[in-house]
Nucleic acid binder design. Structure first.
Lengths: 328, 328
DNA sequence: GTGAAAGCGCTAACAA
DNA sequence: TTGTTAGCGCTTTCAC
């Protein structure tokens, strides 16, 4: 059996309460007994039992993370940042993957609640009043990231809309006459929470309007590649293909290469995310970069502050930057 | 407050023990009371408290994962597979990242043990007799993946050596006369556990010998790119650059492109891992593929079987396949 | 078939 | 300063 505080108490000839006082730096104990207990604990290689502590304290020192999956590079980077910051602050991380399934996501959340996590970092696909109320039923701190839920929930993210608008400004300055917008997740509008994607799209449309660009072709379905396969590029005008994530941009790039459409001479491509793999791809993809690691770290810091001191650390929308590659 | 079994007991006019019998499908209870309790639990929206259950059962229904980081695509895929399989089997996953730091790894392991995880899936950088003994001190099931520790520990992986040897056979069949081997982790030989990398290297050397190839140039340091920058390729002979992971291969490819060394005409490249990003890279990298998802799933199944039924499910080394691209 | 009681390892309130 | 006691919510043993 593992050594418990009782064992230490017996060895030192004191009570369990006193051992607890020594071990956890509580007041009301003499230096002498504290040292004695501490030394005994050391010698006996005492390791505290977190499950017992959790039960009595109602705290587990763990954070639950609800994510789609780890397929997207950015998610992996995010998760990496979260784990590091969390453990630095003394917390462990439960990772749960929802596969973008709303019901599955609720199951994940409930499981986390039942396991008494101290807080949840939530990248949700759910939305709406009902979900908002659902979340409120749990009295557990929650920080939302990327997909906004409502004013009721702390949020860490970037100014998606502004970022995409600036991207359009940048493209417009390059004399593109035609615009195509690629964002298959938009097909889920109304059905699931695609806040970030919607914001990017709104930003795109704002940019189009502000730059007096012609009406763009918007591909908001999974068949965007087929559509692009059939698309006839006007040789007299340059077309800009704006993709809501780098992954779509790379797919588009592959297709254009296959079709022998010169990039960016005939068609330009821009992505969003700045995933690290871009460094191996040519032509270098132009994209929008945002501080993914910071998002993870800030989310953890905010929620831990809420847990330990009662208030979130509100994080203003973080910055972004257009990475100028050779693709547009 | 949350509803507990006591509350249900009070409502139903039975004892807590009886509620437990009903809730957990235990014997010694009439259908009638069972139904009554179950219904009450349903109505009261009872949610079991895992921390309490963990304390009394000594089990937490959680698996601890010890990984380097999530930077490498394969790790993310692995983690993804592990989470899915684990939750399918009713387990939650604590993720801990070691950043390849041996001491940090031990801290992770000990934290996991203190949190009473039921099992640990370990991708270690530690090694040796002392570490072996260290692990034995914990009476927690452990499955090692990728980096082998010793016969004492269950292991899930592939036949790294054989895979690399076959890769060399394949290359040799293509009339390459010069061989360069790239594997910076080899610099840590003796210092940390680089089992997979060592095995791949041994396989490479075996392949070289068997094919009567000339003595290869082995780059086993972080400065491999500088070395390759200065390397003079013999225009009369094709050089094969064998990389121990895709990431190194991509770096090498970038460098060769910069140097305008024609691939694979003058220099061929082969990687290892078959990361999914390869589909966006041209020329298509030739590489060795192995079932990363299966490794994760099998590791989970094996350890859960050990936890619940007392024995691991030994997994024979899994298969691999050479993915023939255009880079060699 | 059911209830009562003990206890998992720890914390915290109250006595002494 | 220290010990005692009563739980946290659940499981389990032993009476009845």
């Amino acid at each position: 059996m593992r050594v418990t505080i009782k064992d230490i108490a017996a060895v030192c000839g004191v009570s369990a309460g006193t051992v607890d006082r020594a071990l956890n730096n509580r007041s009301g104990i003499s230096e002498k007994t504290r040292n004695k207990v501490l030394q005994a604990a050391e010698e006996m290689n005492y390791q505290p039992d977190f499950t017992a502590r959790s039960l009595v304290m109602g705290r587990t020192m763990t954070l639950g993370i609800v994510l789609f999956d780890l397929y997207n590079r950015s998610f992996a980077q995010l998760m990496n940042a979260i784990e590091q910051k969390a453990r630095e602050l003394g917390y462990f991380v439960y990772i749960t993957l929802t596969d973008k399934n709303p019901e599955n996501e609720r199951t994940c959340i409930e499981y986390l609640i039942n396991r008494k996590v101290d807080g949840i970092i939530l990248f949700t696909v759910n939305q709406g009043k009902e979900f908002d109320a659902y979340l409120s039923r749990f009295h557990t701190p929650i920080v939302t990231i990327f997909n906004y839920v409502s004013i009721n929930w702390e949020y860490v993210g970037i100014h998606e809309r502004q970022a995409m608008k600036e991207a359009v400004d940048y493209i417009a300055s390059k004399k593109y006459k035609q615009f195509i917008y690629v964002s298959p997740p938009l097909a889920y509008a109304g059905k699931s929470n695609i806040y970030t994607q919607e914001e990017r799209f709104i930003g795109f449309m704002e940019g189009i309007e502000l730059n007096n660009a012609p009406k763009p072709l918007v591909l908001k379905d999974a068949d965007y590649l087929e559509k692009l396969q059939d698309y006839s590029f006007n040789p007299a005008e340059k077309t800009a293909i704006v993709c809501s994530t780098d992954l779509y941009a790379l797919e588009v790039m592959n297709l254009l290469k296959e079709r022998n459409v010169p990039i960016p001479k005939q068609a330009g491509i821009i992505g969003f995310d700045d995933i690290d793999m871009l460094k191996y791809i040519s032509p270098r993809l132009t994209t929008v970069k945002y501080p993914i690691v910071e998002i993870g770290e800030k989310a953890v810091e905010s929620i831990v502050n809420k847990i330990e001191r009662g208030t979130y650390i509100s994080v203003p929308l973080l910055g972004h930057e257009i990475i100028k590659g050779e693709s547009i």
